[in-house]
């Protein structure tokens, strides 16, 4: 077997092997049991005391969501201020300017919602202060926000009737101090040992072999990159993201970055099983997600390894696969694997340029973001999947003529309405945004809407990808799109914020409403939701919903490009 493919298989296997014990640990943390990092308790209590928060007070789902929104609103204002003033704030050795209002708006929201879409280049568009105090801070807290929301849902799905679902701030703080921070420190040490820069000095001047003088950007990179991946954020220190040799120095760091970004989303599935003591349910969810993940990954790896037939016609040897836009040190299989890993979860970091992938590979990347629940983002992936579970339970109940129930709670019209609103919102934001961009491009493609270098099918894919990435809070892009303009910064800013909070509030609302209902013990008449049959049902629901929502748009972009080759 090709050693590169074997490497990818081993990488995925290792990630799963690490995710199971981590899931057990996360379940313990949220259940309030004794764990390894309990020594952080005094620090947590200090923050609670100075904030005037009683972390032991139980909240209902509405109070939890108000708390979530309130702290996010404060961070939004804070991020806007820092980004718009970074030019005259300290820690700016390279003398980079402040961001324009629309770029600051886009960047603040992008990092706030765990997306990290970057319409700027880190080397010239941000300062050390804004990268560390604002952007890296948001990478930690946005990931913790998603994890805390998932913890509330876990608590709501317990076999009991209650409206008390724990304390949001408690879950939030524990996600930071006991999950994200310790893991980030371990990963940062690995990166530093492998040559990733960690310095506050400005650009370095080097002389190349040809005798040219080159200014090389650097900075405290190793501090940011661990949480960039562990928190499924994806925002890089440098514009080239993990294709930059300082952000991803060698094949070992490439492995560590790939494992890091997949680790917590996978662990959250197992954490659900351990927390609810329903391991079979967790394995069913893992199975459905993994089948979806492999359906996207395997074709991508095959297509990229086969190379680009249009380039082959020019007489270029395609023995190494389609290498345009890929790093020679990583090769096609690891780049193709990364491209799906980073899009099924909401990281959006890249070690190769997605714009250069084969048309159907690009389609798979978009499909991964359109589904957004094959593992999904930090905490929010499991919330997105929960929506599909609710729809599948409801449809299954109708099919077999039984009252739809999930974990002993009846699924009724109210929960279905919320699930449908959340599901349809994604299609509306993606297709509405793309339609608007296409309309403006059709009116004035030369001056005011001159953002496409590829005006054909691929140009449509670039615009579709951008809105898909924003709605999924992913952050990767087809970088042929000129997106640092008021139109793109503002419209994608709105898609980012709408695509984040309603899909969190919706599932938490469903879970909170279910928790308040009478618990019905399982009986012979209960529809089993931890079986292979139900797993197939969920997969079918995801397939049908995604196909109905997005197939026409995909036909106009990547599919048309594929058939025109």
């Amino acid at each position: 077997m090709n050693s590169e493919i074997l490497g990818v298989i081993l990488m995925f296997g290792l990630t799963v092997a690490l995710a199971i014990p981590l899931g057990k640990y996360i379940a313990k943390v949220y259940a309030g049991e004794k764990s390894l990092f309990d020594f952080f308790a005094p620090l947590e209590n200090f923050f609670f005391r100075i904030s005037g928060i009683n972390a032991k007070r139980e909240m209902n789902w509405k109070e939890s969501m108000v708390a979530l929104l309130t702290i996010n609103l404060v961070w939004f204002l804070f991020a806007m201020f820092i980004l718009m003033c970074q030019g005259w704030l300290p820690l700016n050795p390279d003398g980079n300017p402040s961001m324009s209002p629309h770029l600051a708006f886009n960047t603040a929201i992008s990092f706030l919602v765990n997306c990290n879409l970057q319409d700027y280049s880190g080397e010239t568009g941000a300062t050390y202060l804004s990268q560390l105090v604002c952007l890296m801070f948001l990478q930690f807290v946005s990931a913790a926000t998603g994890l805390a929301a998932a913890a509330i849902v876990f608590n709501a799905l317990k076999e009991r009737t209650t409206d008390k679902l724990g304390n949001f701030y408690n879950y939030f703080m524990k996600s930071l101090t006991r999950i994200l921070l310790p893991l980030s420190i371990v990963v940062a040490i690995i990166f530093i040992l492998n040559g990733m820069p960690m310095t506050f000095h400005g650009k370095d001047k080097i002389t190349s072999l040809q005798g040219d003088t080159v200014q090389v950007s650097r900075g405290p990179v190793a501090a940011m990159i661990p949480i960039k991946h562990l928190g499924t954020n994806g925002g890089g220190w440098f514009g080239a993201n993990s294709a930059h040799p300082f952000e991803n120095p060698n094949y070992l760091t490439n492995i560590v970055e790939m494992i890091a970004q997949l680790l917590i989303p996978l662990a959250m599935i197992f954490a659900l099983g351990f927390y609810l003591k329903r391991r079979k349910l967790a394995w069913m969810i893992f199975g459905v997600m993994t089948v979806g993940f492999l359906c996207l990954t395997i074709p991508n790896m095959v297509m990229e390894q086969h190379g680009n037939p249009e380039i082959a016609k020019m007489g270029v040897n395609m023995g190494a696969g389609a290498m345009e836009g890929k790093e020679v040190r990583f090769g096609t299989p690891a780049s193709a694997y990364w491209s799906i890993v980073t899009t099924v979860i909401s990281t959006g970091s890249v070690n190769s340029m997605h714009d250069s992938f084969m048309p159907l590979s690009g389609m798979n990347q978009m499909l991964a973001m359109m589904v957004n629940s094959f593992y999904g983002g930090c905490g929010v992936g499991i919330l997105n999947f929960f929506i599909f579970i609710i729809i599948a339970v409801f449809i299954s109940g109708l099919m077999v003529g039984r009252t739809p129930e999930f974990l002993g709670k009846k699924i009724e019209a109210k929960e279905m309405k919320i699930a449908v609103i959340v599901t349809l919102l994604s299609a509306l934001l993606i297709k509405g945004g793309t339609a608007l961009a296409c309309y403006l491009f059709a009116i004035d493609p030369v001056s005011r809407a001159a953002w496409l270098n590829n005006p054909g099918f691929h140009g449509f894919s670039e615009m579709l990808y951008q809105f898909t990435s924003c709605n999924a809070n992913n952050g990767s892009g087809f970088e042929g799109l000129g997106d640092n303009t008021p139109f793109w910064n503002i419209t994608t800013g709105f898609v980012l914020i709408l695509g984040r909070y309603l899909p969190i509030i919706g599932p938490v609302a469903i879970a909170g409403i279910l928790a308040n209902k009478k618990f019905i013990p399982e009986s012979a008449g209960t529809l089993k939701t931890d079986t292979l049959t139900f797993g197939v049902m969920i997969f079918a629901v995801i397939f049908i919903v995604t196909a109905l929502s997005y197939f026409p748009a995909l036909v106009l972009g990547p599919l048309a490009e594929f058939f025109s080759m």
Binding site: K62, M65, V66, L69, N72, L73, F76, L77, M80, M84, S100, P101, H102, A104, F105, A108, I109, K414, K417, I418, P486, I490, G493, F494, I497, L498, Y501, L502, I505, G506, A509, I513
Partner: peptide, 30 residues
């Protein structure tokens, strides 16, 4: 121009958050 755009975008962000606060009650009563 920059000041006007800054104020407008800050206001737009605040309106979004206001909508999210309202969506909590909306989902509760739907």
């Amino acid at each position: 121009m920059e000041t006007v755009m800054t104020i407008a975008l800050l206001a737009a962000g605040l309106v979004c958050f206001w909508l999210f606060y309202k969506s909590i009650d909306f989902f509760d009563k739907i």
